[in-house]
Amino acid sequence: MRNLLNFLKKFGNVLLFVLLEAIAFYLLASKPNYHSIKLSKTLDATSAFVHEKVNHATDYFSLNEINEQLLSENRELRNAMQRIYRNSEISTFSVTDSIYKQQYIYIQARAVNNSVNKQKNYITLNKGILSGVRKDMAVTGPEGIVGIIVEVGRNYSLVMSALNLDFRLSARLSKNGYFGSLTWDGADINHLNLSEIPHHVDVSVGDIVETTGYSAVFPEGITVGTISEFDVSGGDFYDIKVKLSTQFRKLNNVYVVVNLKKEEQLELETEIRGTR
């Protein structure tokens, strides 16, 4: 007994240290990191509330910029509409075909908390389950991609920003459709890396990179950015740096994209995989 006490006296703090570290690693390893939802709902509500208030105050300073963004987005949309109108003047048609059913719905949300200085950045949005936001939905800004929803609460949701080492997205060159995989290397918040584009493809600086829509998360053709530099690495593939069109530092208004046909696509895909 005395030996045990002596042992505890001598190594008690080491044992406590190991125990506490074990708890820490357990917490670290248990994914999704939405601290707040799992661990303390009240703290989440207060911290998100505070962030929202602060945001509300600071919003006024960037009103000009936000207006500018929305105006240019409106312009794009009007242009797109113009094309549609012209088409329908030539040949009026009414559609009942299932092909023309709406596939995407956009939910407008605001980033109430955002970080760009970590290696794994997350963004908090002020819309949650009650507004129809679900896990694995895409998030885009007026200028391009933003991230993917990883956790949802009742009134708030957590987005894995594109500036996150765990972020993966398939993207393609808009001019010829060759696609590769898009990741962030943690160094520069204005650039992502596009890999797996083979050597024989014609690539030049300034080419537009956009999403593919293969994953059923992002719609097809959402802008990622433009190629700022590329390099022929040792292998058979290019090392391409893509300048992001979204300004993550100034993120404010975003859209959560609901894919109405996601279930169908995933169901079909798992079915095929199952039979093979």
């Binding site: 240290f17 506490l20 708890i23 820490a24 690693f25 990191n33 601290h35 799992k38 303390s40 703290l43």
Partner: peptide, 15 residues
Amino acid sequence: DLTSGNMGLHISATV
């Protein structure tokens, strides 16, 4: 950790 979203990260470093 509660304020940063990566549960366990700051705990392990601080401990």
